[in-house]
């Protein structure tokens, strides 16, 4: 990695990226219940293999244990969390308040999202809030951190020191604004990006080229998103049912041409081959491995992709 960027927080993720290492992040969905062992178990599984672990915030709008509590639990295990926050469920009072709560436990990473629409989840009859959008949440965290102020203008005692991230989907429509949209997020203050799962590598390369043409790869760290397929059914489902997902037919075919008992292995192979190819792309600063309910495979992916052991930073 060419450029050195100043480190502004105590985030391990930020330090690893600033030191020029390829970062590895993963994610874990909190349980649909109050059992703390689910998080502890997943956290322990990932601990030695990734730098930080995102905790999703009621993903797909299914009500779950809150992201903040699960982040605190990870932190206590010695795993650095990334607090995912969606703007769907909380207004600006609650968002700022939760940011302070997280900062009080020295949670140093936040990922700002709008969140899936509630119609996908278990409360389709609920209201959504969307007082801020994801870009405005990025601005809010940066303002709280850099100016040390609340949106209302008052000073914050001990402002939150958070490394601010967001998602980017290089495959969503309209394609022509995917790069301008990233530029807009950078203008809002985003510092790292975790992308949507990448299966269409050609399209991702095209996006990255446009990113580099505008010099954006020097302003934000881009972590390429990956989700291994467990079987051919999952590949088909992701192709046709998940909004904003681009799974090319040849990838689906490769999965379905594989005998059933070998499909999981093939899914991992595709994932690792993708990482190898993504490593060659200038401006890719690391990988975000989302092994959905398959966290136990993350260590194998990280090792086989030559990303282990993880660097130490202080």
């Amino acid at each position: 990695m060419s450029q050195q960027r100043a480190v502004k927080t105590d985030s391990k993720l930020e330090k690893i990226l600033a030191a020029g290492h390829l970062a590895v992040t993963s994610e874990c969905g909190p349980p649909r219940g109050s059992d703390p062992d689910v998080i502890t178990h997943k956290g322990n599984m990932l601990k030695e293999y990734v730098d930080v672990v995102n905790i999703t915030d009621n993903q797909t709008s299914m009500t779950r244990m809150c992201s903040l509590a699960a982040c605190i639990r990870l932190k206590q295990l010695g795993v650095e969390p990334v607090l995912q926050m969606v703007t769907r469920d909380r207004n600006r009072i609650a968002l700022q308040s939760d940011i302070l709560g997280a900062a009080s436990f020295d949670i140093t990473n936040v990922l700002c999202l709008s969140g899936d629409h509630q119609s996908f989840g278990d409360c389709p009859n609920g209201q959504n809030v969307h007082d801020l959008d994801s870009m405005q949440l990025i601005q809010t965290v940066r303002y709280m951190r850099d100016e040390g102020k609340f949106l209302g203008g008052d000073d914050i005692k001990r402002p939150p020191k958070m490394f601010v991230g967001a998602a980017a989907n290089p495959f969503a429509d309209p394609f022509e604004i995917r790069v301008p949209r990233l530029a807009k997020k950078i203008a809002a203050g985003v510092e790292f990006i975790q992308t949507q799962c990448i299966y269409n590598l050609d399209k991702f390369e095209l996006w990255m080229k446009q990113v580099r043409d505008r010099g954006l790869h020097e302003k934000v760290y881009i972590l390429a998103g990956l989700t291994p397929f467990k079987n051919a059914g999952m590949a088909k489902y992701m192709r046709s049912r998940v909004p904003g997902m681009d799974v090319p037919d040849d990838v689906v075919k490769r999965m379905s041409d594989t005998p059933k008992e070998k499909q999981a292995e093939e899914g991992l192979n595709i994932c690792i081959e993708s990482i190898e190819r993504l490593k060659q792309i200038e401006g890719v600063h690391g990988f975000h491995i989302m092994a959905i309910e398959w966290e136990e495979k993350v260590p194998e992916i990280v090792k086989r992709a030559g990303l282990w052991p993880r660097p130490e930073v202080s």
Binding site: T87, S114, H117, D133, S134, A172, P243
Partner: peptide, 26 residues
């Protein structure tokens, strides 16, 4: 916009449709 996103679109916009329903324009 189903999420009244002021700096849109969100990542769910697909072929001109909103993520909530193909019948709804993004």
């Amino acid at each position: 916009c189903a999420k009244r996103v002021l700096n849109g679109p969100c990542g769910g916009s697909t072929k001109g449709s909103c993520e909530i329903n193909k019948e709804v324009d993004c």
